[in-house]
Nucleic acid binder design. Sequence first.
RNA 1: CGGGACGUAGCGCAGUCUGGCUUAGCGCAUCUGCAUGGGGUGCAGGGGGUCGGAGGUUCGAAUCCUCUCGUCCCGACCA
Length: 478
Amino acid sequence: MARNITPRKENYSQWYLDVIKAAELADYAPVRGCMVIRPTGYAVWENLQAKFDAAFKATGHVNAYFPLLIPYSFLNKEAEHVEGFSPECATVTHAGGEELEEPFAVRPTSETIIGHMYSKWIQSWRDLPVLINQWCNVMRWEKRPRLFLRTSEFLWQEGHTAHETEQEAREETLRMLGVYKKIMEEEAALPVIAGEKTKGERFPGAVDTYTCEAMMSDARALQAGTSHFLGQNFARAFEIQYQNREGELAYCWTTSWGVSTRLIGALIMTHSDDDGLILPPRIAPVKAVILPISKDENTAENIILPKAKELAQKLDDELGGLCVKVDTDFHARPGDRFFAHLQKGVPLRLELGEKDLASGTVRLVRRDTGEKLDVNNDNVIPTVKKLLADIQNNLYERAKTFREANTHDAKTYDELKEIIDKQGGFVRAYFGGTPEDEVRIREETGATPRCVLPGNDKGKCIITGQDNARLTIFAKAY
RNA sequence: CGGGACGUAGCGCAGUCUGGCUUAGCGCAUCUGCAUGGGGUGCAGGGGGUCGGAGGUUCGAAUCCUCUCGUCCCGACCA
């Protein structure tokens, strides 16, 4: 249907890029791996940001800002951390026309510099917990960039907390994982599985890493957000010590957690179709668009437009403002205007023409299903509210149904191989192997352990044959 | 980082092998006018590129050579 978008079945990667281009979400920057987030894409990010930020504040966190440049030596203080990040770290070696004595790292993440500051700020158990979040950009020099999913520079949020006890820090890690899951599911309509990462997939420097794992519409997995229990690793590396209630010096227990603009990639690949972008109403910058239609421009402008504006105002009042757009591009033909909004993923289209005025109705068209409804003027506002809620719900349910239909169980390693090879999707299997086993599985199947399911479901490991292995999801991932 | 493909107007392409035959062409989009108008309308007229960038070969380069930047696909690598 859309002539500027490659059908999903034909070439998934191309489809993804075409949707981004058609919806004007982002464009390539002149620097390899970097992108420009265009106003529409940025508006989506702002909406996501607003939801997460409110949830962070509600759980007692405050925002702050730490610098972009980090003394490179800081990264070296945590062995696993530097090993994990140095390959993708950009460094600044010159400034002011001179070579620097010590290079700066452009932050790939901020555990180190925040750890450094925390060691200065934290003296006593009375200073704890410290619950700080920052919204910023980070840079990771990726070999193979893809818009939103893996760009050299991206926007994200990183929460960094320090606690008095291990239990408190562990609770924080899981609390934020829960916050992520809730917002992803309720606001972004992305069904996710919240679970633990295996050893091989852990964040460099973490004791435990948790993830919200989503399935894209090609049945591949996408890590949508992570939360890390850092134990005392960074506290020891940066001497984040405090005097405890007994008057002794003790190391803090820290956590970190983040979600990024990658979520926009997840939204695209979860909800959109061959006509272009589909956005869940709760995070769509424009929730509904009203199109005044008439073959006579004068009628459109002087009779229909005022009514459209009036309706938009009423809807805005009901929906919380600035969410309804009136399309005043009378010169363009209706078909062109439909497609423009279709591709940009506006959840609901309201058509208001002479026929509607005569019959006292408005035509409503859903983006997710294409369903059309003629609704009496009196019922427009409640119907719009209902439809937006329905669309939100439908997108979530649709994605969840797809995920469930593409999730299979494997009793043996051979079965796992077979399913990954023939059907793809998520494969549940008991796994208790080592990181070396994970590497071997990846090499032999292309799949990686995405997440260990919560709960006490245990069984015989498909690799080692040992009992008590935890139920783990394997999949090919982005 | 290895293998492959590619970079010519906003988008998609032809021309590149066999340098001059083009003031660099085509489709879509765009602009103007008229008609049209509820899922991509029709006719007419117009605007826009110096061929990713730098250097070289040549009387002459979008076309040949060297370097460089970027994109896509596969692989390696990677929260």
